[in-house]
Nucleic acid binder design. Sequence first.
DNA 1: CTTGCTATGTTATAGTATTCCATATACGGG
DNA 2: CCCGTATATGGAATACTATAACATAGCAAG
Lengths: 161, 161
Amino acid sequence: MESVGMTAHDHGSCKAERLAAAHGFCDAHRLHFTAVRRRVFEILLDEHKALGAYDILARLKAEGFGSQPPVAYRTLDFLVKHGFVHRIERLNAYVACVHPCETHDPAFMICRLCNTVAETSALPSRGMLGPAAREAGFEIEQTVVEAIGVCPSCRAEGVAG
Amino acid sequence: MESVGMTAHDHGSCKAERLAAAHGFCDAHRLHFTAVRRRVFEILLDEHKALGAYDILARLKAEGFGSQPPVAYRTLDFLVKHGFVHRIERLNAYVACVHPCETHDPAFMICRLCNTVAETSALPSRGMLGPAAREAGFEIEQTVVEAIGVCPSCRAEGVAG
DNA sequence: CTTGCTATGTTATAGTATTCCATATACGGG
DNA sequence: CCCGTATATGGAATACTATAACATAGCAAG
């Protein structure tokens, strides 16, 4: 099982590829990959960390984009809706998706010390909830799977509490 | 797999038992099961729905308890900390736990139409995240597992969208 | 070029949560 | 029993997160 975010990888090409993929996806689906949208995606791609809407808004403001909350929320909504970005419920924050253009049920590992977020797949977990859901007659439409803990580098630093 | 909340059960005794269990747990652990704490727990026990902190605060206020946000948040923190209540991240809301006094990794099925929340166990899901976490060197301390969908009664009413 | 859709920008407000300080109540040691 | 400490409650003020509603601008198709 692959889990991008806490393992070593060529981040430069990682970022470039996903930017290109998003651009391609938008072209293919007649979506506008506009300046703000591109910029927000880039900001999120820069780190495997979750950023709050207001963090992003601050950066946009500093770069001459609109400065009011809807600017950030609308842009994030667009990116989330099309699968470029995921919302982390536990943090009220957002991370770039590591598998753009593929629909999936993401699961996250969140470091409570450095906010790094690694993404992996939750399909197995939906598989586990499946039986309980079937028994109860509940129809699953979406899953939120987030593990909170300590990432390898923070653990190595012995910062843990 | 048992999943309380969307299946028929004797709710009166369900509530009484859990109240008694909480009281017993507090006695045993030298914790104060005070009036506000008891009342908030009762309010949450009344329904298998998630209530926001401000919903609860409104009821407390109407009953003569304090009326400021910390009253609700402190009480909820206490109840969550000791496992009587769970926070539903997706809803910024709280539900009474169906297995008081047992430590576990809960998972929830949330009806997006009527807000009913059913609780089941997430241990299998941690089991699934386990391999990914081990591979990444991530130490899981807590998991958030929430399925969003439509509950049996809403589905029966054909209200679904 | 005009009509209509999508996107951007802004104001105002709603909803969620915490920090800090003051008062009160419970509990153990003397 | 009284005092000192820890815990619990009440409240003011503020911070953080999110949305509604409306106005303007850009762009594409007829």
